[in-house]
């Protein structure tokens, strides 16, 4: 597996996309630091990037990569290579590339502006988010034989998790506004990786005070060890579960 990862990574790190993604993130981060002196507000803006840009770019890039390397994957599979090894290698390479770009693109400017400690939790969350959406991209890719359709499914995943789900959540909150529904919303939030990252990062920051009782409830939960573990475990599930399903499908897929 390490052999495959090493070479695919060597290839991916040289792609124009990875470079452009890194530069894009770096420019945006630098601009944010230039425009605003308050590191906590910059962190909030970077949070927006992690919540919107990272999932979209990760899922689209991973899907395109899967279909671009289709022939190469069949070539490798004509070698004595296990299918699961190949799929996991591909996943590790793509996730590694995207996560590396994120860490370099956001981390280096933050380091230069001396705000790395504030940004660090965000970077970790961003890496988890990247892994999760690469997993979802692989799921979308193995669900079909057609590149265009796979990209379509990927975009649907993204739209669902970043927009539709929150709309539904708002509907739930609205419908049950007379009841104490914090625990239920907590469960619902955990069912969307974007929401999970957003809330857990917000709770680490001072601004959570603006969220009133809801914020206080989440803060007491996410501030403790249980909340932290819950967050990590849920994120792991969000990374591993789609990957596990895509592996299962890939094992018996006709290439």
């Amino acid at each position: 597996m390490t052999t495959i990862v090493r070479y695919i990574l060597a290839d991916l790190l040289r792609t124009r996309f990875a470079l452009a993604y890194t530069v894009f993130l770096a420019i945006v981060t630098m601009a944010l630091f230039q425009l605003d002196n308050d590191p906590s507000r910059v962190t909030l803006s970077i949070l927006n990037i992690v919540l919107m840009v990272v999932p979209l770019f990760s899922i689209v890039f991973a899907t395109i990569h899967y279909y671009n390397s289709y022939e190469f994957m069949t070539l490798l599979l004509s070698q004595p290579v296990k299918r699961s090894t190949l799929l996991l290698s591909e996943w590790a390479s793509v996730a590694g590339t995207m996560a590396g770009s994120l860490v370099a693109g956001v981390g280096i400017p933050s380091l230069i502006y001396g705000a790395l400690t504030q940004v660090l939790p965000l970077l970790l969350a961003g890496v988890a988010m990247t892994c999760c959406f690469v997993s979802l991209a692989f799921l979308a890719s193995v669900m079909t034989q057609d590149k265009a359709r796979a990209i379509g499914i990927s975009l649907l995943f993204w739209i669902y998790f970043s927009m539709i789900y929150d709309g539904l959540l708002l509907l739930v909150v609205y419908s049950f506004s007379d009841y104490p529904i914090e625990k239920i919303t907590l469960a619902l939030i955990a069912l969307n990786p974007i929401d999970l990252v957003r809330i857990s990062i917000l709770m680490e920051m001072d601004v959570s005070a603006l969220m009133g009782y809801t914020g206080a409830f989440y803060r007491s939960f996410f501030g403790g060890t249980t909340g932290m573990l819950f967050c990590i475990v849920m994120m792991m599930i969000w990374i591993l579960f789609p990957l596990w399903i895509s592996r299962r499908i890939f094992m018996n897929k006709d290439l």
Partner: peptide, 20 residues
Amino acid sequence: LISERIPAAMVLWRSFTVYL
């Protein structure tokens, strides 16, 4: 306006949906 009436709606603060 929404979150003043339904405080629990605050869970959506800073989400893409609210941005939209």
